[in-house]
Nucleic acid binder design. Structure first.
Length: 807
DNA sequence: GAGTTTGAAACT
DNA sequence: CAGTTTCAAACTC
């Protein structure tokens, strides 16, 4: 099964998509193939690159070195589960041996009690059939492991409808409920019959399906592979939940849900078994704090997260952003300390940021996908909300945004990962009511009325402070007392991918995608959506208070937060684009959904424009996404900056396509080359071009332009100086007025004016009387006027002095 | 500000 | 791929 359709693969950057390398690094080699029937047919699983493995870790931060070790992997072959950590560790794995219809799997949940490290110990071994689940009955209940963590019975899986219940995972003993979607009926063919968890103290999550161990908590049922777990976390505890659904290669329509990204590797290398990846998407409601009720994560739900669930997710950490960088880093959004006030998280992020949303047709089920989880460093590890929603036959959206503003954002670094994870720190004050709502998110009615969503399906919106990518890197994890929260998943996912680094560093193809871009899934196949946000967005949005992540469901988002997200203008650096205000468009017929519209072409929302019937806004997300897709269909690089670097030896910047001017001589702004202040190149098809280096016309224009610019600058400087002087004058005179003092001009009363005029007339008569020339008369009048003014000023000064003395 | 010109985008 | 139409910005008056 292909996790990502070829279309998506072609579009998404390899760096992002290539998860195999990362998985290889992180995951120990699988010694034995998964016992599934499919395993033999297929080679080693290629882990699906999941930047956001759902990981639930209850462990305090550890030293970096420990972090590396902390990561444990579960091999499908291992049936033993070892959860262990000095701190609270939760390991949940479920693998199904898989019968096509009956789900059998092992689920191990261990919670090491604080202070009793059981590193290296296998806490629980659960037979593969331990938690059999049937399509009809998709509920797994995981009980808290015994204090010693060795009791096999520590983890209990129960079938209850389609819910996976994880209870007693944390010190607080708050249960985590994972609800499996009803659609999650297909038998899982996951290979991993068992899981082996090697954990260091304060370790967490390791899940592997298939031959390759995958870090993260993973539950695999015969029909589905899913899991999510969240548990209360101590400060700096990281909870990651990876939800993946695996299906036999033969099975059609499997969906893979990853919390964080991903592009499936070439299907060629994927094995049917492991890779499987139909991922169940749904909601995850987790109760992380003692006070709060258990949270339930529903996977595979069509409409997943309700606002409440989101809010609950707000309490929970959401991992939304993946951004490839030179240095691998994972940034996740961390929940705020329990006591911290919960911030409203209702802002549609994707829209606000203009993120790219890619709805990708899910590749054939034959390509296996392996969910890989990345290891997070202890330093960065903190309560993390990982939201991964995978939907079956529904678009998925992944939102990855380098967010950072402490304390709300924390960075998680994942060794070997080139992506940044941002931990959103949100208040964990989610109340029971919210939790309840979240659990009932399946009911559309529970969804708060919201603005039109991009998709009719589940949506998740989070508002997070945005900071420059650089800032994100510097984010320091802060202790958190609130448990990490699991993200809700739905069949329709929206993903925002915001590279912390400039797009060029990521991959050129990614730059082709405009914010809000949606790659529609092929008919009959699962959908995956990606919301891609270029790093430029981050910088451009620095001034924005919040960035809203939104997916299609019913989170109501304040329209007021419609934030401008801009892609870099052609040939201009982000700083340049941000430094000057964007010109408002005046579109009347295109609805601002065609490239005629500069706003749309630049990946921006219309804001303060003069357009008519504008659809380039939050209120028309779906239309906008369709338009983006249409543009990409016509031209895959439609949203790629037209001004790029030319070939070697050529100009540093040149138009990617060249212009086609015929009448303007390429010396007017009609010409895109001239407009970008670059010369035409060999690829231009212009007629009568005068926009070349030696062109006298061009030089003349440039000189004129330069001169005009200088004049403008001078005028601006003069105005500024004048304004400053006036301001200074007012400042100095104000005290005199306020203190009752009189300015000289206040003495120019009617009488004084008349007297002055008389003096001036007298001078005029005098000049006339002596037949003086007009010039002499004017001089005499002016001199007299000067004398009058001096007398007035002198009188005023004297009066003021007298007043100050007397008063 | 209205009207014209221009060339990219969209369409056929 | 070429020709035509549509569109909105650039430009002129």
């Amino acid at each position: 099964m292909d996790v990502v359709s070829p279309e998506l693969n072609s579009i998404l950057p390899d760096e992002i998509m290539d998860t195999e390398a990362m998985a290889m690094e992180e995951d120990p080699p699988a010694e034995t193939p998964a016992p599934s029937s499919h395993s033999a047919a297929e080679p080693a699983q290629v882990p699906m690159e999941t930047e956001v493995p759902e990981i639930v870790s209850l462990c305090p931060a550890t030293a970096p070195t420990q972090k590396t070790e902390a990561l444990t992997t579960l091999t499908a072959t291992d049936s033993t589960l070892c959860g262990i950590s000095a701190g609270t560790q939760l390991v949940v794995t479920s693998s199904s041996s898989a019968g096509p219809k009956m789900a059998t799997g092992t689920v191990a949940v261990t919670t090491a009690q604080p202070g009793s490290p059981v590193v290296g110990q296998s806490v629980a071994k659960i037979p593969a059939p331990f938690a059999p689940t049937s399509p009809a009955n998709h509920q797994l209940i995981i009980n808290k492991v015994a204090a010693d963590g060795k009791s096999p019975a520590a983890a209990v899986l129960k079938q209850e409808g389609q819910k996976l219940l994880v209870t007693g995972l944390s010190k607080t003993g708050q249960p985590i409920v994972l609800a499996l979607p009803n659609t999650w009926s297909k038998p899982a063919t996951s290979q991993g019959t068992g899981t082996d968890v090697k954990t260091q103290p304060t370790q967490f999550k390791v899940v592997s399906a298939g031959t390759k161990p995958v870090i993260g908590v993973q539950a695999v049922s015969s029909a589905n592979q899913l899991l999510g777990s969240s548990s209360p976390l101590q400060a700096q505890q990281l909870k990651t939940v990876q939800i993946t659904k695996k299906t036999p290669v033969s099975t059609a329509g499997p969906m893979i849900t990853k919390l964080i990204i991903t592009k499936a590797l070439n299907n060629k290398g994927l094995t049917s078994q492991a890779t499987v990846t139909p991922v169940v998407t749904g909601r995850v409601l987790t109760q992380t704090t003692p006070v709060t009720p258990p949270r339930t994560i529903t996977i595979g739900e069509t409409i997943s997260t309700t606002p409440q669930s989101l809010s609950s997710s707000s309490s929970s950490n959401s991992k939304v952003a993946i951004s490839p960088l030179k240095s691998p880093s994972k940034v996740t959004v961390a929940a705020q300390p329990p006591n911290s006030p919960q911030k409203p998280v209702a802002v549609p992020l994707n829209v606000a940021l203009g993120q790219q949303i890619l709805t990708v047709q899910q590749a054939a089920s034959t390509s296996p996908a392996k969910a890989g989880s990345s290891q997070s460093t202890a330093q960065t590890v903190k309560p993390v909300q990982t939201v991964a929603v995978g939907g079956v036959n529904t678009p998925q959206f992944k939102t990855i945004i380098p967010l950072a503003t402490p304390p709300n954002v924390q960075q998680i670094q994942v060794p070997g990962s080139r992506f940044h994870y941002v931990r959103l720190v949100t208040a964990t004050t989610g109340n029971t009511a919210q939790t309840a709502n979240a659990s009932t998110t399946t009911n559309p009615t529970t969804i708060q009325p919201a603005k039109p969503m991009m998709m009719n399906t589940a949506a998740v919106r989070m508002s997070v402070p945005i900071v420059p990518a650089q800032t994100v890197k510097q984010v320091v994890p802060k202790p958190m007392t609130s448990a990490a929260q699991v993200v809700s998943s739905s069949q329709t996912q929206q993903r925002l991918i915001m590279p912390a680094a400039p797009l060029p560093q990521i991959q050129p193809n990614l730059t082709n995608l405009p914010p809000g871009t949606v790659l529609a899934p092929a008919p009959g196949s699962g959908n995956m959506g990606y919301a891609v946000l270029p790093a430029q967005y981050v910088t451009q949005l620095q001034q924005s208070t919040f960035v809203t992540l939104a997916s299609s469901s019913g989170f109501s988002a304040p329209s007021s937060i419609q934030t401008q997200a801009r892609l870099p203008l052609n040939g201009l650096s982000p700083s340049e684009t941000t430094s000057r205000p964007r010109k408002p468009c005046n579109c009347t017929k295109s609805q601002c959904l065609k490239l005629y519209c500069d706003c749309f072409a630049n990946g921006e929302f219309c804001n303060n424009c003069n357009c008519v019937n504008c659809f380039n806004n939050l209120d028309h997300e779906s239309d906008r996404l369709k338009a983006i897709k249409a543009c990409l269909d016509r031209n895959p690089v439609a949203f790629k900056p037209k001004i790029g670097k030319g070939k070697e030896g050529e100009s540093e910047r040149r138009h990617s396509k060249g212009c086609n001017c015929k009448k303007s001589g390429c010396l007017k702004n009609y010409c895109e080359c001239y407009e970008a202040k670059i010369m035409c190149s060999s690829i231009c098809k212009c007629v009568g071009c005068k926009n070349f280096e030696e062109s006298p016309e061009r030089k003349t224009l440039m000189h004129l332009a330069d001169a005009a610019e200088v004049r403008v600058q001078q005028q601006t400087a003069a105005k500024t100086k004048l304004s400053s002087q006036i301001s200074d004058l007012l400042t100095r005179t104000t005290p005199a007025i306020s203190s009752g003092g009189k300015l000289p001009y206040t003495f120019v009363t009617k009488e004084v004016a008349e007297a002055t005029c008389d003096c001036l007339l007298e001078q005029a008569r005098k000049a006339e009387r002596y037949n003086q020339p007009q010039t002499v008369a004017e001089r005499l009048i002016l001199e007299e006027f000067g004398h009058c003014l001096r007398r007035i000023i002198s009188s005023a000064a004297k009066a003021k002095t007298d007043c100050s003395i007397n008063c």
